[in-house]
Simulated assay, not measured.
Amino acid sequence: MAPRSDPVEWAPVCRLAELEIERGAAALVHGQAVALFRTDETTVYALANPDPFDRHQVLAKGIVGVSEGVPFVASPLHKHGFDLRTGQCLDEPHVSVAAYDVQVVEGVVLVGQRKSVAA
């Protein structure tokens, strides 16, 4: 599977095998601190790493889980949950973190642009 041919810049971050399932990892992508989360054999999500409640770079250290079918990470500081698909806070609907497009090509995790926020 080849990367998309649109103008999105896909940054290779790591090999899929380097990410542990249900654990986070921090990376610098396009100059931004990003938290990567591998939830199963092939699925990887990327969110901005800062906790929006205090701006500490900690989301990659959060607890990964699923609640009512929603994959999430709980901040290790304030325990707020964030939807891994969208970055939306599950506890405070007016708060969110940036979510990024992710694809895996030939075993390499690529992070693309920030997802647009649904209105």
Rank of each mutant, 00 (worst) to 15 (best):
V73E: 03
V105K: 03
Q57F: 04
H78E: 11
D101P: 02
D91H: 12
V64A: 11
V102W: 00
C89Y: 07
P71D: 07
N49Y: 00
R85C: 12
V73R: 00
I63F: 15
N49V: 00
V70N: 07
V111K: 00
G81R: 13
H78G: 13
P76Q: 08
H78D: 14
G107M: 09
V109C: 05
E92T: 11
L110R: 00
L84V: 08
R85E: 14
L84H: 02
A74T: 11
A74D: 10
K79T: 13
V66G: 11
L59M: 09
A48E: 01
L59F: 06
E68L: 11
E92S: 08
D101G: 10
F82S: 04
P50H: 08
A48C: 03
S75H: 02
V64P: 01
S75A: 15
G87I: 03
D51G: 03
L59S: 04
V109T: 06
Q57S: 15
R85N: 11
V104F: 03
R55P: 03
G62D: 01
D83S: 09
V58M: 07
E92P: 00
I63T: 15
G81Q: 14
Q88N: 14
P76N: 06
E92C: 12
V102H: 01
A48T: 01
V66T: 15
G107H: 07
G65M: 06
C89V: 09
L59T: 02
H80V: 06
P52Q: 05
D101E: 15
V105A: 10
S75Y: 01
D51W: 00
V64F: 05
G62Y: 00
L90E: 09
H94F: 13
Y100Q: 02
F82V: 09
V108A: 08
L90C: 11
V109W: 00
V73L: 05
D51T: 02
F53M: 14
P71Q: 07
G65Q: 05
D91I: 11
P50F: 02
L77N: 04
H78S: 13
V104I: 14
H94L: 13
V109D: 01
G69D: 07
S67L: 13
L90G: 11
V109E: 01
P52I: 03
G81D: 09
V104A: 12
H80T: 07
P50C: 07
P52E: 06
G62C: 06
P71E: 06
Q57E: 15
A98H: 07
